[in-house]
Write a protein that binds this DNA or RNA. Structure first.
Length: 1060
RNA sequence: GCCGGUGUGGUGAAAUGGCAGACACAAGGGACUUAAAAUCCCUUGGAGCGAAAGCUCCGUGCGGGUUCGAGUCCCGCCGCCGGCACCA
């Protein structure tokens, strides 16, 4: 060992001994489970506390570990989690690993080491790095997507999708059993289809549209080609309108919402049916040429956003993949058509989009009839029309669409102007002008040469033509989306196997009890290159029965991340993917009290059931409290079928209020009452006399109700067994105002009641309030805007429809942390050599300095370059904090400074202290970490200057600093403190009275320029301020020789004198 | 082309329509020290005037507008970053 003296010299170089105290506190937090979150039902769980679920996007544990850019978001959530805990919240702040994926598998192929092994190693590295940052995760909830206990439920959710369909009538996913059509396989949310897909030869797998960027794979940048293959898809398109519409209610950055809107790509327009012309240009009739259509003159439908330009459609274009081409192409055009289609099929997406600026196409020989004017228009095929969008066919209006214009010019097709930017007179639709327009006009305007539409502005013309087409059955208003179904299978080893077997060419699901379906052990993970998945090599595993074999595709990496935020709520649940109570509690459909209500209901139900055994159904009559969704969740939670739902906002409470107002029926109607605070206060009176409560249900009228009642956490629940003969259990819920006592409690209770009535009113006016819920705050990078974030929303909505979760959206609030650039201002990357490793920063300056620096740099959402000198500055700040309380003695040991004394805080210092408590709290709520730190620096500077230093002020600093620099704060708290852990302390209160100055300084402007300052009493009147301002010496100077025209006094702000 | 964001000192950045540049970094000067490190103090948007205290003018990408007052709101441009892009 070093001699003591040498040791202290070495130590002295460190501004404070973070290298000792940081590991110490990390160990303590882990040992004492300081950040362990309790679930409803756990011993010690406090349902009265509000909850806060704050989530990071879990990382893929790569082999290279973290760089300093990764933890930006983790640090933000950590600070918020620690703060919310001090604020009395039950905080859920978990972390886990998104560990299936390509890199681990590619590494395995290279080294022969099993991905399971490398994944475990990488996870260990990541976890230790995160721990060294002092992140307050509840590690007891750690999850790993590659853990069979986890992916079992990923497979289970897939089965829910497989066994479900989207019912357009109800606009939601339903069990496949409710589908009455002939072929359920055609409508499942998870289905197989043979279609052109994105095949990446280098990766040996197919990819989703979202994973292909400019014709190359997102991972690795390898070329991607179109190839028809039999693949699994998920029917995300069925949810397109909901995924789009429900973005509005989310508290997300506008940019991410815009990205998703863009990706979903809604277009409003019309579908128009064109009839195939009977006569072709060679004089033959269709009947003579093609047998198939002899008896049915079929239609070709096109989609257009500009139905108003229908009179200007001079030709039609089909996508080369369009299925009707074989039937319509004329004999003489057939070779050219076939050649063009083959050429197109060979083209990659990249070729088709990037290089195809020059239009190509071939005439099919067929003609279609324009339904509005009976004109024969030629039908072409061209690759600028895409098969997957709209109907795969367009009407071409070259005068008003740039692509059609270009195409028409190249192939000398007619161009007819039908929209004029200015209203034009005297141009009848019956006489199309012969002169072709000189340029393409794509804007809106007024219809011309368009028969009955002439003169109408574009928007009216659209509506008019659509109405006419609909009346004739030739078209209809249509909404089209760009979003395509999600290609869900991959030809890789390291992913979840599908819980599907194939028998005689048909697929079917395996049973739930067969899960998890574990992938086979393989020596050789290599993709086959033929599109056959590596799992096909496991011959033993492959065989399911004599006749059936297993599906060999695996799920994409996104599968596991689609629902991980749910698993965190209840990570060890062995019977359900997430416990209902845990899900309802943490994702916010219910607060702790609601969850307790459900638990009590279950108990009451058991009691009722024991009196008269047999299946019970639940009939929910809700007084202003539960909406329909919650009633459904309640029935699921109690295990009772929901036989009916009625909203109950009126009835007793309604009558009671009505009586009070002296208005008899007729005057005040349901949902139209202006409910006052006083009215709400009357509600508890009803509750206090349960005997007066009679069943309000139509069937229970007049019969005395058998009431079970139970009081839980300010709730009173009645269970009314008035419908015994029908085996229906009537439940009612009613909110009870919090017991009188502390004012604050009563107010909190009141606010809740008030909200209840708002919702009740909203419901009775038939406009359900949007159900908020999901993760309270989700922080992550912007790169998942249309991948993970869209997929997860889709899964969540499907699970919601199927009754498995209680909210329609997974992430209520989303924040993107900004990118961290290298010191050179470039993106951090190994090849640039500008990567900064957090471990090195921690070794030199400590984790607290790294934490504070990353948050001090600027706003969380902003991109910003790393600066080592910046870390140094923050480290200096922390060292100053340390020296506020500590000094070195003769022996070179740190001891509590004699300057810290238990004295009363001088008023000036107290002011800074309370201002700091206020600002840091507000800034944390607003995620303005940088300005919070600046304020703490101000406070620290003030404290440094003070001698002696009041103990209470130093402690206050530690309380607010704790979220940012928890190790340092804990250590000083311990040395100064009462023996309790700082992390468990409540957030300090500030005294607003102290922040109000008796006298305030006001700047005085003359013509908008500050010329002097005056000091006035805080409650000075405007007249007093005016007089003081005009008397100020420099104001007198500046207004000399001028006349004062106006004086603007902004109390507490400034005075502006307008003079001229 | 379309969509979203953004533009303030040498640098990172502050600023409910109300004193532009808080808080830091860097730089310069000083104190302590034999010396260095560490620490502490001072100066620091630009130009000009003054011996000094201080004063004046200009200044938030550019051009207009609203207002007693604009970094902030409105209109029109320009630059940069991100996304989408033959989506009919």
């Amino acid at each position: 060992m070093f001699p003591a003296r040498a040791m202290s010299n070495a130590e002295r170089r460190k501004p404070y001994p973070f290298d000792q105290l940081e590991p110490k506190w990390q160990t303590r937090w882990a040992a004492e489970k300081t950040f362990h979150a309790l679930n409803p039902g756990d011993p010690g769980f406090d349902p009265a506390r509000p909850k806060f679920y704050v989530l990071d996007m879990f990382p893929y544990p790569s082999g290279s570990g973290l760089h300093v850019g990764h933890p930006v978001g983790y640090l933000a959530t950590d600070m918020l989690a620690r703060y919310k805990k001090m604020r009395g919240f039950n905080v859920l702040h978990p972390m886990g690993w998104d560990a299936f994926g390509l890199p681990a598998e590619q590494y395995a192929i290279k080294t022969g080491e099993h991905p399971r092994v490398t994944t475990a190693r990488n996870v260990a590295v990541f976890k230790s790095q995160l721990t060294r940052l002092g992140l307050a995760y509840d590690w007891s909830r750690e999850i790993n997507t590659t853990d069979p206990g986890y992916f079992r439920w990923t497979q289970w959710i897939f089965l829910q999708l497989y066994h479900a369909w989207f019912n357009p009538a109800t606009n939601r996913a339903e069990p496949i059993a409710t589908y009455s059509g002939g072929d359920p396989d055609a409508v499942r949310l998870a289905y197989v289809s043979e279609a052109p897909v994105n095949w990446c030869q280098a990766l040996g797998t197919v990819l989703a549209n979202e994973e292909v960027i400019d014709g190359r794979s997102e991972v690795g940048g390898h070329p991607v080609e179109r190839r028809p293959m039999l693949q699994w898809k998920l029917r995300i398109t069925a949810f397109a309108h909901r995924l789009l519409d429900e973005l509005d209610g989310l508290d997300w950055p506008e940019s991410i919402k815009a990205l998703q809107r863009n990706w979903i790509g809604r277009s409003e327009g019309a579908e128009v049916a064109f009839r195939l012309a009977a006569m072709t240009n060679d004089g033959m009739t269709n009947d003579e040429r093609t047998g198939d259509i002899r008896h049915s003159s079929f239609d070709i439908r096109v989609f257009t956003t500009r139905p108003d330009t229908l009179y200007g459609a001079t030709y039609m274009v089909l996508a080369p993949e369009h299925p009707l081409i074989d039937r319509i192409a004329t004999e003489d055009q057939r070779p050219a058509v076939r050649e063009y289609r083959e050429k197109t099929a060979r083209k990659s997406d990249l070729d088709r989009t990037e290089l195809a600026k020059d239009k190509t196409g071939v005439f099919t020989g067929a003609f279609a009839i324009n339904p509005v004017n009976g004109e024969r228009i030629p039908m072409w095929i061209a690759d600028y029309v895409l098969p997957g969008y709209g109907t795969g066919a367009i009407m071409a209006v070259p005068a008003h669409d740039e692509r059609d214009w270009e195409f028409a010019r190249k192939f000398a097709l007619p161009i007819r102007e039908v929209v004029s930017p200015e209203p034009r007179l005297g141009l009848g639709g019956e006489s199309p002008c012969s002169a072709e327009p000189l340029e393409c006009y794509i804007g809106e305007g007024f219809a011309i040469h368009s028969g009955p539409l002439d003169g109408l502005p574009t928007s009216e013309a659209k509506a008019e033509i659509t109405r006419r087409l609909e009346a004739l059955g030739l078209g209809k208003k249509t909404i089209t989306y760009k979003l395509r179904d999600w290609l869900f299978s991959r030809q890789r080893y390291w992913g979840e196997p599908f819980p599907i077997v194939w028998e005689e060419g048909k697929h079917r699901a395996i049973e739930g009890w067969e899960l998890p379906l574990i992938p086979p052990e393989l020596e050789d993970f290599k993709p086959t290159g033929t599109g056959e998945p590596p799992l096909a090599k496991a011959t033993e595993w492959l065989r399911y029965s004599d006749k059936a074999t297993r599906e060999t595709n695996t799920m994409p990496q996104w599968a596991g991340s689609c629902w991980y935020y749910l698993r965190y709520c209840d990570p060890l649940n062995a019977t359900r993917f997430v416990g209902r109570d845990a899900e309802r509690y943490w994702t916010g459909a219910a607060d702790g009290r609601d969850v307790a209500v459900v638990a009590a209901l279950r108990g009451l139900w058991r009691e009722a059931d024991s009196r008269q055994p047999g299946p019970l159904r639940l009939h929910a009559l809700c007084i202003g409290r539960l909406d329909e969704t919650e009633a459904a969740a309640l029935s699921a939670a109690t295990g009772m079928e929901l036989s009916g739902y009625a909203h109950y906002a009126d009835n007793q409470s309604f009558r009671h209020i009505q009586k009070k107002h002296g208005s008899e029926s007729g005057e005040a109607k349901r949902g139209q009452l202006a409910i006052t605070e006083e009215d709400v206060a009357l509600i508890p009176e009803i509750v206090r006399h349960p005997d007066e409560v009679r069943s309000g249900s139509p069937t229970g009228r007049g019969r005395p109700a058998i009431l079970y009642s139970k009081r839980i956490n300010g709730w009173v629940i009645y269970v009314e067994e008035s419908l015994v003969s029908q085996r229906r259990l009537l439940i009612k819920t009613m909110y009870k105002k919090a017991a009188t006592g502390k004012r604050a409690t009563a107010e909190a209770g009141f606010a809740h009641t008030s909200e209840t009535f708002r919702r009740a009113q909203t419901f009775s006016s038939r406009k359900p309030a949007p159900v908020k819920g999901g993760v309270d705050l989700y922080v992550g990078g912007t790169e998942h805007a249309v991948l993970h974030l869209l997929y997860a929303r889709f899964w969540h909505k499907a699970l919601f429809d199927l009754g498995h979760v209680s909210t329609p959206e997974p992430f209520q609030r989303l924040v993107n942390q900004g990118l961290m650039l290298g010191e050179d201002g470039q993106k951090m990357s190994k090849s640039r050599g500008n990567v900064v490793n957090p471990d090195e920063v921690i070794a030199e300056y400590g984790a607290d300095a790294l934490r504070c620096y990353e948050m001090f740099m600027g706003p969380l959402e902003q991109t910003k370059p790393w600066s080592m000198t910046g870390v140094e500055g923050v480290a200096r700040f922390l060292a100053r904090v340390w020296r506020l309380a500590m000094e070195e003695n003769q022996a070179g040991e740190w001891v509590v400074s004699a300057a810290v004394q238990d004295i009363e805080c001088p008023r000036a210092l107290a002011k800074v202290m309370h201002a700091t408590i206020k600002k840091v709290g507000e800034d944390l709520e607003a995620l303005s970490f940088n300005t919070a730190i600046a304020q703490m620096m101000i406070f620290t500077n003030a404290l440094t200057a003070a001698a002696p230093r009041p103990l209470s002020a130093v402690r206050a600093l530690l309380l607010v600093l704790n979220s940012f620099a928890p190790h340092l704060a804990e250590e000083l708290w311990e040395r100064l403190g009462t023996g309790e852990m700082l992390a468990r302390q409540p957030w300090p209160a500030f005294d607003p009275a102290l922040l109000i100055e008796d006298e305030i300084e006001l700047p005085v402007q003359v013509n908008g320029k500050v010329r002097d300052k005056i000091v006035v009493k805080k409650d000075a009147t405007a007249a007093e301020i005016e007089a003081a301002a005009l008397a100020a010496p420099r104001i007198v100077e500046h207004t000399a020789g001028k006349s004062v025209k106006k004086i603007v006094v902004v109390p507490g702000r400034l005075v502006n004198i307008v003079a001229g």
